[in-house]
Amino acid sequence: MGASGLGGGGKRNVNVELNLVPFIDLLSTLICFLLMTAVWQQLSSLSTNSASTTSSESPAPPDPNRVDLSLSLLLDHMLAQEGKKSTKIAHVAGEPDYAALINVLTEWKSKYPDRQDIVLHTDSQAPYKQLIKLMDTLVENKFEDVGVNTN
């Protein structure tokens, strides 16, 4: 670092070493904080409107023109009911056929674009994950007001 101010004979070295120590300190502190506050499992929730299906309070008078939409999950098939019309959807390899269900839901959505409510009836021996998967499929297809029948 021979800096000569007068003669100009010695040129000042322009290469400066960056001080990495505080940078490494900062990174280490940040890593410790992020590791301690890390959430490894992203939890979310699916809500059900149980009051609409099992409430003992006096419900609003039913609209005679209103078509009830419901879905029944049984052990070997599903029943999609649109009023009195029902569509049977058989399971594929022991699991509900979600692709066929999406077709039915798309058809319902085109018929009733304002409707978001649907009632789920389930078999008692069906596994919990099938109920969740069904609710997830319904929410995905804009039927977000899902009521689960607990009877």
């Binding site: 499992q41 992203q42 939890l43 979310s44 929730s45 699916l46 809500s47 059900t48 409107n49 149980s50 009051a51 099992t54 409430s55 969740i132 609710m135 997830d136 607990t150």
Partner: peptide
């Protein structure tokens, strides 16, 4: 529901 807890949320793995 019988005790008035009608806003039920199922915890799922997002």
């Amino acid at each position: 529901i019988s005790e008035g807890w009608t806003n039920i949320n199922f915890a799922v793995n997002g």
